[in-house]
Design a binder for these strands. Structure first.
Lengths: 141, 141
DNA sequence: ACTGAATTGTACCCTTGGCTACATTTGCGA
DNA sequence: TCGCAAATGTAGCCAAGGGTACAATTCAGT
């Protein structure tokens, strides 16, 4: 099967997807923290992401540049409209992924771990298929 | 649900997995090229990965450092024992992922694309669940 | 009110994986 | 055989996302 250009395209797409992964994780986490504590502090973000605070600050700076987040010096971090929308999509996708994995028999902790990586690469088509499965539709006849 | 440390661990694991993604893709591709043409040339690797050749060379140099690949100046690239084993595992995982996605109703091209990203994050537990599903075992009773 | 701890910010370094530009080596075809 | 195109290698740039070390600011508690 010599389908080189298609393969290159697929690798390219996976590569592009990779660049948004960290943003998605941060935005989702910030939304969680705001929901739980009313605000998102850099230290808490760093702790929950399992990185040092300068790393978190740098990623947050990038989120700011991309208009997903706002913050004033020595103050908390807030999601913009765009950030909130992204957070909602990401959270929904994450929940669906975990539920699906558990439904097909993956133990809960493994499902949570794997979803953390896989969720970022699931297209609409795949998410739709997962939804159908959870809804009880027969996938193959 | 304040389970911060666990969440940090999960993010950490996903991060670790991320660092092996490129190696896995290269090793699998090199195995493909060797099977198809009897040798793996840097130019072909670059073309199929959709990157420039210096980028491919740099990644190959890293594979060499990690003992997955060998090569002599201006000669082709060859997998070591470890490289061949990795390639086999990766290829099997890739096929399983694609088959599974198609089985639950994802269109073929989307399945190929999504698998390219998701395959690197599926644990043994998840792969086992996918296998069971393909074998026709009822996932939930 | 003020001091000390916690939080936030800054400076600088590393590796990975992109790129372009240029140098070197192979090896094929005239 | 020998020259030129193709392949390979090298140098140097960039951004992202890790890290440490240190500076600045906030804020609680006395």
């Amino acid at each position: 099967m010599p389908e080189e250009p298609t393969q290159a395209e697929r690798f390219g797409k996976a590569r592009s997807a990779r660049s948004g992964v960290v943003q998605e994780d941060y935005v989702e986490l910030i939304a969680d923290l705001m929901a739980a504590h009313g605000e998102a502090r850099a230290t808490d973000i760093a702790k929950r992401m399992g990185v040092t605070h300068p790393t978190a600050l740098k990623c947050i700076a990038r989120l700011k540049r991309e208009g997903l987040v706002t913050s004033r010096p020595y103050r908390g971090i807030f999601l913009t409209e765009a950030g909130q929308e992204l957070a909602q999509r990401v959270r929904a996708r994450h929940r669906l992924m975990v539920e699906f994995l558990i439904a097909i028999g993956v133990p809960e902790e493994a499902a949570e771990e794997d979803a953390e990586g896989m969720e970022h690469y699931a297209s609409e088509a795949t998410l739709a298929a997962f939804s159908r499965f959870l809804a009880g539709d027969p996938p193959r006849n």
